[in-house]
């Protein structure tokens, strides 16, 4: 349904999107995960024909976004980062306007209006001025706007950003309920969001795709304590042996750290089990002094950590 091929977008010297390629199948929800500034919005703006690409191509429902922009626009519902609302209009007036410019036939407009209001659960709010709505409701009107012409493809740019936890939950459920009938690309910088709503994830960082996988795989790898780092004081040889007897431990490598009898250990464990508790207990029971114990991240996780820590720094 969506084919993106070596898409590149330059702003002056900055490569905001760098040779990005991916596909989305019909009916699929694809998560587009990456920290702020990764290039998510830029990619989506190219897909929605708002911006032209510098290089590469993108096709939506078989139509090139550059050559056949009108056909693409007819088939896409787009919720930009900031919902594109006219505060001074009523919800109904606004949705009527969007229906008109999206080409909904006059005889279908009333019905579509009722349907999308029901879908995003704003039935009672048609006569309200948009400026009097809460943030969560504005976001729903934004979604209703994207849905009004019943598009094949939905592109949602950080649809839950700035909402409170309850609203986030509702919007996520709403998006999930839309899959199947629609092909959806959803961007986010929050990992759990992707695992909750998406079937496949593209991780993008600094304009480049760093991973494409299912959220299950990503989450499993994230939780799996595949490698554990430990520092402890006490006899290195004895502790080595003790560690190797613990269930779930595959191998242990150690290296003395110099001062006292402090040694660092790198313990490889089975993916499915979290053995950190067992390790800690046996180290202490054997009378060793436990100084540090933490799981080492896998490379994909490192990507995530990098993403999420950058996010934390930014949001502080």
């Amino acid at each position: 349904m969506i084919e993106v091929d070596r898409l590149t977008k330059r702003y002056g010297n900055l490569k905001a999107v760098d040779e990005v390629s991916f596909q989305v199948e019909k009916g699929e929800i694809l998560g587009f995960l990456g920290p702020n500034g990764a290039g998510k919005t830029t990619t989506m703006r190219i897909l929605t024909c708002f911006l032209p690409a510098t290089e590469g191509t993108a096709r939506v429902a078989g139509y090139d976004v550059f050559e056949n922009a009108m056909e693409v626009k007819r088939r896409i519902g787009y919720l930009p980062e900031h919902p594109p609302l006219y505060d001074e209009m009523t919800v109904d007036g606004y949705l009527q306007f969007v229906a008109r410019i999206k080409g909904v036939a006059p005889e279908d407009r009333r019905r579509r209006l009722l349907e999308v209001k029901e879908t995003v659960r704003i039935e009672g709010y048609g006569k309200k001025l948009i400026k009097h709505l809460s943030k969560g409701f504005k976001q729903r009107v934004g979604l209703a706007q994207a849905l009004i012409h019943d598009p094949e493809v939905l592109i949602l740019d950080e649809p839950t950003v700035g909402l409170d936890p309850n609203q986030i939950k509702e919007v996520r459920e709403l998006i999930k309920s839309l899959s199947g009938n629609h092909t959806i690309i959803l961007s986010t910088h929050i990992l759990p969001e992707v695992s909750m709503t998406c079937q496949r994830v593209v991780i993008i960082s600094d304009g480049k795709i760093v991973a494409v996988d299912t959220p299950e795989n990503l989450t499993r790898q994230q939780q799996g304590a595949a490698h554990i780092y430990m520092e402890a004081r006490g006899s290195e040889v004895e502790l080595q042996q003790r560690l190797q007897q613990i269930e779930g431990v595959l191998s242990v490598a150690s290296r003395p750290l110099g001062e006292g009898e402090v040694t660092s250990y790198r313990i490889e464990t089975e993916l499915k089990q979290d053995v950190r508790g067992r390790i800690a207990r046996s180290v202490i029971e054997e009378g060793f002094e436990l100084l540090e114990l933490r799981s080492l991240q896998l490379s994909l996780e490192e990507v995530f950590t990098q993403l999420t820590t950058q996010e934390e720094v930014r949001s502080q």
């Binding site: 708002f50 009108m70 896409i76 787009y78 594109p84 609302l85 505060d87 969007v98 999206k102 706007q145």
Partner: peptide, 13 residues
């Protein structure tokens, strides 16, 4: 300013 231009320019208009 209010980003509604994204709606207008991504509509079949």
């Amino acid at each position: 300013r209010r980003a509604t231009i994204e709606l207008l320019l991504t509509s079949p208009l």
